[in-house]
Nucleic acid binder design. Structure first.
Lengths: 220, 220, 220, 220
DNA sequence: CATGAATGAGATTTCATTCAT
DNA sequence: AATGAATGAAATCTCATTCAT
């Protein structure tokens, strides 16, 4: 640590080396997302990742401890991105059906646009219940995601509502979108998936709203 | 197969050796289901399976080519079991809502009773989109399952209905149950899952029925 | 486990497979001793060992967890062999000088005959103070060896003697033989080592005896 | 080395850069001694050294070719330090027992005061017999050390004495101190080691003196 | 038919060394 | 002169698969 760098550090400056390392880290993450989607989390080797990133094998270990860590990191990033969209309510939302509709919309748009991230999240979901060691790190993000879903729905539900009911609602929303997508991907082409979800979404919104005791007349 | 056995076979006799082999095969399948559920399909080794089955490692290869084969076999068996229940309509069903309700019921009862099989099927689902090599064998059963779902729903839908709509319906049913379960398993205890799905199911039935243009008054 | 084997097990029989495994284990141990002596504990790779033993790389891991384990095992075996010789007092020993002489003799004969084992034990000695993780397993044998030395010397020392003094004596005996050998091996040819230790031994015996307050006249 | 520095060098000047480089080199040596003692020569990585020295990894290679070189360098420095003490005879020494006593004293004081250096020298000793590649560089210092020991002892021994006997004596002195320390470190606390060597030393002096035919009466 | 010891291909992981800054 | 990110050779280790018994 020469004085020059110390000054940098004090200033909170980012050195050139830091920038380079950051670029490398991003290259690894993006390569990993690609190959995880193509070959599957388990089937992917570290070398698959570094080769795709056009980096040396050893470089991976400078940035991540193991495959698990990069996977958890990607799941976290992807869920954050998804949550960002969920939070980002464009038009004014006043009623519960509107809220549910927005959440479903945001999900399926995200999954359609970021197909790779959907596949990653779907795979990550699976690991949560298996391999105890991983789930500790991995379960966190999904828990957080579910909580946030509840948090986004809560304001549109009467305060007297059983919190358990909101949790069910959140599971239903998340489960429906993930599940439908996962099966639609077997039975249909990508374009069909897109056009299929639209009409289903509407009836799903209605049924979930009424499940929470929503009466269209009153708006509550 | 010595000549002795061939003669037996010709006679249609089942030798003692055959019975023993069959018992061994079943032990392997049941052990595999257990460990696949505990450690995950990929993380499970052949030795995990044979150890759980209290058999020698070599024995595995006498009955299955590799892990893939036993996994596909288990998926197939489990889906058959599920389909058996779906087909097995107890009470008289006349309307579409009744049909959907029955399917949802049968699914979630199966998943609750046979939790291990749900986890297996969920894992298998995943592989279909990944690891090209496996999916060839694995995709079949899921396709068949989806077809059968459509087949079971078709009679309750007007003939003029777009077949695509039925496919969507099947995906929605399958997706909803799989997805809801998968998320419910993070957010709730097993007993809560059970009590949670009940009320949701009803509103889901309604929304899917209306999606297919079902009018309660007419019963069509 | 077929009935046949169960009977074997009950009888305490050793199956043919067991015998084969045992032969392999011994091959590994003997190969490891060789290469550890030639290249050094640290410089030796697992493959060096298996190649020397003319076995597959994987075979090593059937029998030992890692290099550490096989090294500790060898140290243990070698120390046992050495201790066996120490215990095995041929001629009648009545006085302390005779006892010390016997111990020194037994040591240096062992080291001359089993040069490889000396080098191994010397290397192992080193590890005890380093790499905490290893020392836990490795320290045991050397402790035991030191204790046994004390145990062998005790009867020839008056009971009133401070136990600390016996410990010092044991350290002196062990230290002298190990140390002298280690330096003699730099400065001399093997034959010279042999002829060198003889005269030194005698004066060493005398000095150690007198250190413990032994008076030649009284025999105590 | 830019021209500017060359001119300085010609002038015999020491530039600021030179001083800085020297400080860095010393930091590396002292860090290496520490970690070699803690983790062992082989287990230590270059990064362990530079991290301890709070320097960049690349800096190491500016000062030393590899781990071997810094290790050999440290062994050499430590042996020089030890030899310096051996040469530095405080009080007048006239007889062989006095000479031996002084040498033993100097050794064990050095080892007690500079415990790290003892561990290093002990490790280095080991490498001499192993790892052919290293020993070439490493053997030198130990040879030199042994020679110097002989050289220091020679004047107190009759000229007619077989030079082989002196070599044995040197080996015995070095071996005893190294060996005793190494075992004492297992069996005792550091303070005990200190108090233990004192009485042993005296009887050892006597035995070695008489081994060389020294008769107390004559002083020769 | 059942066994489990042996195998080696291939994955993970470490670390000495280089090099652009 | 000092740095530390990147590298890939070489080590460790796992596990599907074979095969003699």
């Amino acid at each position: 640590m020469v004085i020059h760098n110390m000054i940098d550090a004090e200033k909170g400056n980012i050195t050139r080396a830091d920038k380079r390392a950051d670029r490398t880290r991003r290259k690894l993450l993006s390569a990993a997302l690609e190959v995880f989607t193509e070959y599957g989390l388990d089937a992917t080797t570290i070398e698959d990742i570094t080769q795709r990133a056009d980096l040396g094998k050893g470089t991976f270990y400078r940035h991540f401890q193991d495959k698990e860590e990069i996977a958890t990191c990607l799941v976290d990033l992807s869920l954050n991105e998804l949550l960002e969209r969920l939070r980002n309510v464009g038009k004014l939302i006043k009623t519960l059906p509107e809220a549910i509709e927005h959440l479903l919309d945001a999900h399926y748009k995200f999954f359609l646009e970021e197909n790779e991230k959907f596949i990653l999240l779907f795979q990550g979901r699976l690991l949560v219940k298996l391999e105890r060691r991983i789930s500790e790190k991995m379960e966190g993000p999904y828990e957080r995601y579910l909580h946030e879903l509840e948090h986004l729905l809560a304001p549109f539900v009467g305060e007297k509502i059983d919190p358990m009911k909101i949790r069910r609602l959140a599971c239903a929303v998340a489960g429906f979108v993930f599940g439908f997508f996962s099966f639609a991907m077997i039975g249909m082409e990508m374009e069909q998936v897109e056009s299929s979800i639209q009409p289903l979404r509407q009836s799903f919104v209605k049924s979930l709203s009424s499940f929470l005791g929503y009466l269209p007349e009153t708006g509550k």
